[in-house]
Amino acid sequence: KSSGQLMAEWGLDDVDYLFSEEDYHTLTNYKAFSQFLRPLIAKKNPKIPMSKMMTVLGAKWREFSANNP
């Protein structure tokens, strides 16, 4: 499932962030990516359980990696 599908299924607000060329150069591993995106997700979904946060971050990382030029 996509991150958007997961968040909709769980009734969470998705984070629409348009990644720049620079993001693809600086966010080169999962740790850097999650440190960048986790606060954005948490801000829109302050009560998100950690298990769902990790699942969403994993899905967003897969999508980000697939779109990386």
Rank of each mutant, 00 (worst) to 15 (best):
L57S: 00
D16A: 05
H25F: 12
E22P: 07
S3A: 07
D14V: 00
F33T: 00
K47R: 13
D13P: 05
L12Q: 03
Q35D: 13
D14Q: 03
H25R: 14
Q35N: 12
Y17M: 06
Q35K: 09
D14G: 03
P46G: 06
L6I: 14
L27D: 00
L27Y: 09
S2N: 11
A8D: 14
H25L: 14
L12C: 09
T28C: 10
L57G: 00
A32C: 09
D23S: 10
K47H: 11
S3M: 05
E21V: 07
A32W: 02
F19Y: 13
G4R: 14
K43T: 15
F33S: 02
M50S: 04
M53L: 04
G11P: 01
S51Y: 04
L12G: 03
F19E: 03
F64E: 01
D14E: 05
S3C: 07
E22D: 13
E9F: 02
G4E: 14
L6C: 02
S2M: 11
L18R: 14
S20R: 13
K47L: 02
M50V: 03
S3Y: 08
D16H: 09
G58C: 11
F19D: 03
E9A: 11
D16P: 09
F19C: 03
R62L: 10
E9R: 10
A42F: 14
F33K: 00
L27K: 00
K31A: 11
D23L: 02
A8K: 15
Q35W: 04
G4V: 13
A32I: 11
G11T: 01
E9D: 14
I41G: 03
S51F: 05
W10L: 15
T26A: 06
P39L: 01
Y24T: 06
E21W: 07
A8H: 14
S3Q: 06
W61G: 01
I48R: 01
E9T: 12
L27H: 01
K44R: 09
A32R: 11
N45G: 00
F19L: 05
Q35R: 12
L18E: 11
L57Y: 00
S2D: 10
G11E: 08
G4N: 15
L27P: 00
Y30D: 05
S2P: 02
S3P: 02
G11S: 08
A32E: 13
G58D: 10
R62H: 12
F33Q: 03
N45A: 02
N45R: 00
L40H: 08
F33Y: 08
W10V: 06
S51P: 03
